[in-house]
Design a protein around this nucleic acid. Sequence first.
RNA 1: GCCCAUGUAGCUCAGUCGGUAGAGCACUUCCUUGGUAAGGAAGAGGUCGUCGGUUCAAUUCCGACCGUGGGCUCCA
Length: 632
Amino acid sequence: MIKITIDNNTKTVEPDKQVGEILADPKALAAKVNGQIVDLSFELNEDAEVSPIYFDSKEGKSIFWHSTSHLMANAVKLLFPDVKLAIGPSIDEGFYYDFDLKQSLTDKDLEKIELKMHELAKKNLPVVHKFLSRKEVENYFNEKGESYKLEILLEVPDEKISVYEQDGFRDLCLGPHLPNTGLIKSFKLLSVAGAYWKGDEHNVMLQRIYGISFPTKEELDAYIAKVEDAKRRDHRKLGPQLGLFLFSEQLGPGLMLWTPKGAVMRRIIEDYWINTHYKAGYQIIYTPHIARGHLWETSGHFSYYKENMFTLMIEKEEYALKPMNCPGHILIYQSAVRSYRELPIRYAELGTVYRNERSGVMHGALRVRGFTQDDAHIFCTPEQIEDEIYLTLQLALKIMSDFGFKDFNIDLSLRDPKHKDQYVGTDEQWEMGGRALIKALEKSGLSYTTREGEATFYAPKIDIKLLDSLGREWQCPTIQFDFNLPARFNIHYMGADGKHHTPFMIHRAILGALERFLGILIEHYAGAFPVWLSPVQATVMTITEQEIEYAKKVIEQLKTENIRVAEDFRNEKISYKIGEAEREKIPYILIIGKREKENNQIALRKRHQGNLGNTSLESVVESIKDDINHRR
RNA sequence: GCCCAUGUAGCUCAGUCGGUAGAGCACUUCCUUGGUAAGGAAGAGGUCGUCGGUUCAAUUCCGACCGUGGGCUCCA
């Protein structure tokens, strides 16, 4: 007999019983045995601590989705017998499987595959885990012509090869998996896309089918509703619709036109940004959009980044559009002999840069070829770096929270300790830099994830990812050391010891890029911006033409109070005008009819709140200003 | 850059198995002076993404290119 502990309850059972049998929990997908995740068919033959794994956990989802991907591959193999299977893992949201297939898969094929999957699921096929000899597995895949599986097999070091089988379908897999296909009740194949074998663009391109699945139909419906919600917020749709920006085929891909309302928002953001930075001890500078090729040779961009740069010839000399602002900032730093007494020097610029992004990677306002970074470079002494990082973190958090982002995931990216040769800078610099970043994070009381090997080649960094109203991550603030440029440009400051020292350089952006940040704001607020950011804060509309004169006075007063106000005096029904203003997501709608004119009032309607009845103009102005001050 | 899909009026979309196109909304004019999310009528608006090929004839078929979308790769 062996002792099994479930939820602090210990019972004694006979050995060699399956863990699923002991749990006897219909919702369990798999189990954890002494910390190890196993199939429900796992046989217990020693004392163990056992807990069930449900769909609501990360592990549970991963198992569920992985099993669905096997089910899909099973179906594809039946429908297209000459298909070759590559890999099919679970991902953050759902799963995929990569196939090598002559014919291109269409949406119609996805439907057929779904039908076949339902068929297989209904059969409630047992999923069996086996360990086979290498030879046996090799023969099997050889016979089936599964060249990709054979290639993977070469990388598996184990003696006994773990495979899973359902029906006649066998796949190389470590598992674990659901005990049978019948548990997969609700799923949807989402899209088919190209993907390189092993993610290497030199390899053949496979066809990847993405899908998602859930234990119940309700969960699948909720997921689809969430996707629909995200679609409604899509900045690529809302941006042009709300008159914020547009792209033009004539202008070129990845180049954004800021239309008047978007330009108003940009101006507000820029003013806010500049004021905030002056207060935080930054100096605002401007640098040109083009520079001589020689500068980019000095900075190293021509050797590391040239394929992403736009170059042009000026009087037989090569120039380039700047892809980054740093060299310009360094030239300003370098224009005088700097004393340690001057440091830290903080240069900030809303600098427009151009990068030749590959044609397939552009994405709305989020990935463009021309964009304005809210960039800054801090030059400081080694003693100052901790404080500077801390201050930069605090500034980033304050700015993010002013824009309505309060939740973050933070990554600390360090170099890969196994490949130190791939990075510039000394061990001492890397250690000092990493330590300073950690100390600043700890002092700020922030939790973070350490990611080794994710640093840039020139220094460690902190990346802050905002979580928006749908819980999606957006990478915006980044704080990076730079061990490369100070050395390349050979910049110095005079220390208290009367000797030249190389300053530390911190490179940071908070909003990231204005284009991208506007896109994120649109998605976060679904276009219904807080009043301080709204391009139009209030609109005044009349019921009949008798009130136009009074309404004009109201507008004048609002303008005197610096409120951005629009008017709608058109000969239309009031509900028509209201509908339009609501669709434009204007926060304050001021309606004026006969009653309001007579009583020297306005009728107030607020976004999301509807009709609030009559009130004085003064109280509306107060309310708008209150919203602005609280950044609501 | 690569794979797949896609491109018809300002927007959302029909349509033409080859004979140069249609709706709703928006726009203009007129009627309506209407009280909290779309009143009525008329009008105007399209080189059917671009270029080329096949054809008596191409928006429709074929090809190339451009843009966009889903991914891959990239993201100093």
